[in-house]
Amino acid sequence: MDVILLQILNGLDKGSAYALIAMGLTLIFGTLGVVNFAHGALFMIGAFCAVTLNRIFNISFTTIDETRTDFLGNPMEVHTTYLETWLGPDLGGAIIDWSVPLSILFAIPIMVAIGVVMERGLIRHFYNRPHADQILVTFGLAIVLQEIVKHYYGANPIPTPAPDAFRSAIDFGALIGLEPNAVIYPYWRLIYFCFAAVVIAALFAFLRFTTFGMVVRAGMADRETVGLLGINIDKRFTIMFGIAAAVAGLAGVMYAPINSPNYHMGMDFLVLSFVVVVVGGMGSLTGAVAAGFLLGVLESFASMNAVKDILPGIDQIIIYLVAIVILLTRPRGLLGRKGVMEE
């Protein structure tokens, strides 16, 4: 029981990231008909927004401490942050400590802007081109973006810790009456799951209960008719691209403490997220979310020793195996819409 619960919990945080990225992917595909291979790079840029804000908060001035020496035997340079000087060590230190959650506010406008610029500047020129062209150009864009990040931030992972209060783990087992220490789960991963649930719910509510969302959904179903009604659907779709970029970016921001950001993390998630979209059904938001969590949990179960002893290497292929089975039995994916990518 405790082992099963542990693996379900483990799968939820990764599943949350898959779901958030896949939701953005399927939203862009559903609205603009574009297969966006640069979406993983947006997740990575989000994580680097957290790194950047952390660095901004840590901008410091240098003083010389004559009583200590550096590795060359010269007087030691001591760095003190401006934040701690201006606001005092307590408040300044707290702001630095909370740089990841605060990065959400920092990342939203940046990610929306990047999304809009990406759509208006490049991707719109490929709306009427074959999917192969779209994949090539967005894949190329992803490589350009990750190389830019590598140039400025280096290739090594950059530790970006969660606030001190959330760095430990919760004894989840004890909370639900199991043996103490049987099910330990880090606080931050729990927060990540809750955060993902809120973002997913907010996006669904936005599309469901606002006029803007209604128009977008109508446009997804029948773009021409909505256009004939005099509604500028292109503008709304561009905004949706920006929102999808922001969702991917927020997923990246909050993931930074779980895996130290590195320039390649977008690619690591991109392929799996595409499988999630295909399993969930191209163009289906609900399918993307359901498949994200499902595959995250299955991946977690597949990495159990008991499972790997029976099926060696299963942890590496489980997602693709499920994708094959789903596509053989339900060619449109779990919740795919009729007509999407079938013309």
Partner: peptide
């Protein structure tokens, strides 16, 4: 990149 599913069973 994420070792959580390998580390979680260590506790038990």
């Amino acid at each position: 990149t994420d070792f959580s599913s390998y580390i979680a069973p260590v506790l038990n």
